[in-house]
């Protein structure tokens, strides 16, 4: 474990390739549209845009590390936001004194986080105690969470918040957007959890071989419960950011974020069958995506083309990260007909 050895290793990792991709995309966009892409205004607006779905991707990452998936992240985000929004609109109004609205805001945030935690417990219980495949458990629970949000609001948007709410999604601290700070904090937190705590190591180990984890006397049920609770609470935070940026909450906001979050996690090198994943990879994947979409936006490329490019990027990265080309060559030569 000399520094030189680990450096040599790093160039072979999928994260290193992602770093190159991120730098290339950034460089390319800077060259193509130097005065606009590199403008302070664009950089700030990017920093406001990506944290909400990037946090969902972090939630996806930890569940994928166990070989699971959380398809309920957007449902949890919206349900949390709707609950927070209802508390804010019921008990406070824009004319309220700042201190009072701050109280209701903190109560709303607490309630939202509790929703995320409860949703996580439910998902975790379905996966751990009832043995449902995570993809089905969270698909079903996601519909239930979205459904509650619809039932509570009748399907329409909840709005009319005190000004303090805007801080979460639109505020800046020392010129740094608050959503970016939240994302950075959560990314560092998740990185530390996954690499520096007993729980985090158990997550990777379980993902690598669930049966061996059972025989190694790991408390699997408690671990899975924690994983889904963390995913749920991360989703709640993303929901609050979405609510603040949209200045409203609605049951079907961010529906495109679900597949985007899965896409970013996989792009970031997380093994969807469990056992491997690094937060740095996910962060680099998020940045690449954001550079790409902002840059394309500058170049007047439509939103839809971005989706196209994301998909191409995902498959391209998979082809590079796995030995897909070797498989292709083998299937061409070995096929008897």
């Amino acid at each position: 474990m000399t520094p030189r050895a680990s450096k040599a290793d790093f160039t072979k990792t999928p994260e290193f390739r992602l770093l190159i991709i991120a730098v290339l995309v950034f460089g390319l966009m800077s060259v193509l549209s130097p005065d606009r892409f590199l403008s302070a205004q664009n950089l700030t607006s990017m920093a406001f845009q990506f944290p909400e779905f990037a946090i969902l991707a972090l939630a996806m990452t930890i569940t994928m590390m166990t070989g699971g998936i959380d398809l309920s992240v957007v449902g949890v985000a919206n349900l949390s936001a709707v609950v927070a929004a209802l508390i804010l609109t019921q008990f406070s109004d824009p004319s309220m004194p700042a201190a009072q609205s701050a109280f209701w805001l903190s109560l709303a945030i607490t309630a939202a986080m509790c929703i995320g935690a409860v949703a996580g417990v439910l998902n975790g219980a379905l996966v751990a105690f009832f043995g449902l495949p995570p993809i089905l458990a969270t698909l079903g629970s996601g519909l239930v969470f979205t459904g509650f949000a619809i039932a509570m609001t009748g399907g329409s948007a909840v709005m009319g918040f005190p000004d303090a709410v805007a801080v979460i999604g639109n505020g800046q601290v020392w010129g740094i957007p608050v959503p970016l700070i939240l994302f950075a904090a959560l990314a560092v937190l998740l990185h530390l959890i996954l690499t520096r705590t007993a729980f985090g190591l158990r997550v990777s180990m379980y993902g690598a071989n669930p049966l061996a984890a059972l025989y190694a006397a790991i408390d699997i049920n408690r671990m899975l419960l924690k994983v889904y609770v963390i995913a749920g609470m991360f989703s709640s935070i993303a929901g609050l950011i979405i609510m603040s940026r949209a200045n409203s909450a609605k049951a079907d906001y961010g529906s495109s974020y679900l597949l985007l979050a899965v896409l970013i996690a996989v792009l970031g090198g997380v093994n969807p069958y469990g056992g491997y994943g690094r937060v740095i990879g996910v962060v680099l994947a998020v940045l690449s995506m954001q550079f790409l979409s902002s840059g394309l936006n500058m170049l007047q490329v439509s939103n839809f083309a971005r989706e196209l490019i994301w998909g191409v990027l995902l498959i391209l990265v998979m082809v590079i990260n796995t030995n897909a080309l070797a498989t292709l060559r083998a299937s061409m030569t070995r096929s008897p007909r």
Binding site: A212, I218, G275
Partner: peptide, 15 residues
């Protein structure tokens, strides 16, 4: 059942 094959020796011993 016994080992986490893709994981490091370190993690396998110290789990």
């Amino acid at each position: 059942e016994g080992l986490f094959l893709s994981q490091s020796i370190l993690h396998n011993v110290t789990i």
